[in-house]
Amino acid sequence: MSQSAKDLVRGLYESDFFNDSSVLKKFLHQDAELYWNASTGFSKMTYDDLADMSSEMGKSFISLRCSISHLISEDDKVSARLTYYIKTVENPDEEVGIIHFMAIWELKDGLLYRGYQISQPSDDDPQNNDAHIRIKS
């Protein structure tokens, strides 16, 4: 039984990919591309680039928790709004918000194939806290 488009996106962002980049195979097409607009600029990333980045993240983070506030699908496309919270090697007792994402993913062959993602650093503004707007998806 194949996963729904929503399940794939939720599974990718909530997975333990930062500890084991092989987890990406369950969610990403081998020819996947991510077009990422970040505060540092634009990046086009391939599957291998994402696997390499995941491995590097695992060296700094003890935990990475995803909070998805919106998850909307139509046909073979899914949009998500989420925030990541981390615990670092340097500060293992405190979880802090690190980044907000908006993403759109297209599927191919039952896997995430092409992603368009925008991110910006997290902040402490209570209006930006997704807990008060979290929806069931």
Rank of each mutant, 00 (worst) to 15 (best):
T83P: 03
T46W: 10
H100L: 11
M57I: 09
I99W: 00
Y35P: 07
G11L: 06
S73N: 08
M45P: 00
S67K: 11
K77Y: 10
K108A: 07
V89R: 10
D123K: 11
F17W: 08
R114K: 14
E74I: 10
D76Q: 14
N129F: 08
I98H: 01
Y113K: 06
H70C: 04
D7C: 00
N129R: 10
L50D: 03
Q127W: 10
F61H: 01
H29M: 00
I135E: 14
G41H: 12
T40D: 14
I68L: 03
N19D: 05
S79C: 15
E14T: 10
T46L: 14
R134G: 06
N129W: 05
D130V: 12
H29T: 01
L82P: 05
S2Q: 08
N128T: 09
I135K: 13
S137Q: 15
S4K: 06
P92L: 08
L112Y: 05
A38D: 10
I135F: 03
K87F: 02
A5N: 09
Y13L: 05
H132C: 04
D31H: 06
F42M: 15
D124T: 09
G97K: 03
D20H: 04
A5I: 03
A131V: 02
G110W: 04
Y84H: 08
S137W: 12
D7N: 03
M53D: 12
S79P: 03
I72P: 01
D124W: 06
I98K: 03
W105M: 01
Y47S: 07
